Amino acid sequence: MNLSILDQAPISSGKTAGEALQASIKLAQAGEAFGYKRYWIAEHHDFSGLSCSAPEVMLAAIGANTSNIRIGAGAILLPHYKPYKVAEVFNMLATLYPGRMDLGIGRAPGGSAEVTMALSNNFLQQVYKLPESVQELFQFLHHDFPDDHMYANISAAPLPTTPPQPWILGTSGKSAKLAADQGVAYAFGHFMSDNEGPEIVKSYVDHFKARRTLKKPQTIIAVSVVCAETTGKAEELATSSLLWKIQLGKGEGKEGVPSIEEAKNYTFTDEELTVTSKMKQKMIIGNPQDVKEQLMELQLIYAADEIMIVTITHSYEERIRSYELIANEYSGRKNL
Rank of each mutant, 00 (worst) to 15 (best):
G189V: 08
S315C: 05
P79S: 04
D206A: 13
A156E: 02
S48P: 00
T239S: 14
I309W: 06
A64I: 07
E88V: 06
I307H: 14
G74N: 01
E271F: 14
P79I: 01
S240Q: 04
E297Q: 13
K233M: 11
E196F: 12
H207E: 11
N153L: 10
A54M: 07
H142G: 06
A179E: 06
G110W: 07
K264Y: 12
V257H: 05
S172W: 05
S155N: 12
P160A: 02
S322T: 14
M283A: 14
M58N: 05
I307C: 14
Q29A: 13
H314E: 04
A304W: 04
L141N: 08
T276K: 07
K26V: 08
T116Y: 10
E56I: 05
S259N: 04
N91G: 03
Y151W: 14
M150Y: 14
L237F: 13
P288C: 11
W167E: 01
A156M: 09
Q299F: 06
M101F: 03
K209G: 00
V134F: 03
S112L: 08
Y186C: 02
M101Y: 02
F138A: 00
E136I: 00
L169C: 03
I284H: 07
V205A: 10
G49Y: 08
Q218G: 02
A61S: 10
L124M: 10
C52D: 05
N287T: 09
A9W: 11
S12V: 01
K215C: 10
G49Q: 07
